[in-house]
Design a protein around this nucleic acid. Structure first.
Lengths: 219, 219
DNA sequence: ACGATATTCAACAATTACATTGAATGTTTT
DNA sequence: AAAACATTCAATGTAATTGTTGAATATCGT
């Protein structure tokens, strides 16, 4: 671990951070924590993996300076160490999207045509919210919705989508969002809505980015 | 490698990219390639590790979409897959700098006081270049200097620094730069210059960022 | 076609990362 | 103080990564 040259010492630290990001479930944990501080139990539930496993991943990320922990009663609350963490993940996602054919294949698996894929920007959604010309759909699970959502958004988790379609106005365009730019639930929601004849698009990113951009959050 | 859910499939791809960044020597390779396309032999020379080893790292990075390769005669020329790669590395470095005590310790090892550490920005250097009130020092090896440098910069690799100090004007402030924000050579150069009584500072980043910002490059 | 050079491949041993299990720690509640 | 709960630790086996070596491949110059 320790090295002779200071240059290598630096690069080893950087590599430590990158290595901590190099695991799908740790990225999933960061996605969750991007929406707000959470305790270990809940995270294990969300990911569907053993608690001890989550604990170990979280500690690996803590060693790498990605997350911070704080004890509150019998819970240990983890949170992202700073906004830079989400930025780093985004940068990595962009590299993957730009240079890895596999990523585009998966993303495109949700759509027939490329041009249908165009998402709506935060600013545009913000403007159309003021006009009231859109229905905003938060397709995350109810507990995540409860901890903060876009003002006026209707919470409709994927599982309930079909059953509650009748409550939506078919004349208005529907904008779906979830946890982030690569949260698959919003892709899936848009696909299903279109199949039912709705005009639907995705928000370009998700809740943490919306909040980070200083947009209003309702809870 | 393949997975059931599309969500995991995506995250596995992202993790692949991050994992490819999770090795000090691969980061060093990216630093080198950030200055321009290079062939394997030269990279092995720069890092001081076996050619086969470099080849393997490069291929790992190619699989992750970080670098691209192209054959030119008997050489295989590698280059960064896009500007996003440097951005991702920078994001990771920022996380490390912000949250890992170890990084600051190493960086600070080159300086006595914190405030002396303040680097000069690209814009400020650009302005002072026009005034002609600074001496700009490129402390990279001669071959890297030859492939492009800041206009008017004097090439003075670390090894020759002391011997050629007499050619510098002690009345002018010296700005040193090298390969990037964490290239240790510029830190070392500033430290040595100050020990000799010069007024010296570092450029906040290095050559690839200078070129990426659209600043003029001389070669 | 031949030798020289640049890169990659294949195979091995050493190390490190990973998931899983059950026990241990620390905190609240009773 | 004891029970209940959330989290961490320690130990295990398995899989993946790493560096090294030498052979294999591809290209150039003659």
């Amino acid at each position: 671990m320790s090295s002779t040259s200071p240059k290598l010492a630096l690069f080893e630290q950087f590599a430590l951070v990158a290595k901590a990001l190099g695991h799908p479930q740790r990225l999933e944990l960061i996605e969750q924590l991007g929406q707000g501080p959470r305790h270990v139990d809940l995270l294990a539930d969300k990911l569907g993996i053993p608690i001890a496993n989550v604990s170990q991943h979280l500690q690996a990320m803590r060693r790498a300076g990605l997350v911070a922990a704080e004890r509150q009663g019998k819970f240990v609350i983890y949170r992202l160490a700073g906004p830079g963490v989400l930025e780093a993940v985004e940068a990595i996602q962009q590299v993957a999207e730009a240079n890895l054919a596999e990523v585009e294949k998966v993303v495109r698996g949700y759509f027939d045509q490329r041009d249908n894929l165009e998402p709506i920007s935060r600013d545009e959604l913000s403007a159309r919210l003021r006009d009231g010309t859109v229905t905003v759909l938060d397709v995350r699970p109810a507990d995540e919705y409860a901890l903060g959502h876009v003002p006026g958004a209707v919470n409709m988790p994927l599982g309930e989508l079909e059953a509650r379609l009748s409550t939506l106005d078919p004349a208005q365009e529907v904008i779906a969002y979830c946890r982030g730019p690569y949260c698959v639930m919003s892709f899936e929601a848009v696909a299903r809505l279109r199949r039912k004849g709705f005009s639907a698009r995705r928000l370009e990113d998700g809740m943490p980015e919306w909040a980070a951009a200083g947009q209003p959050v309702e809870s």
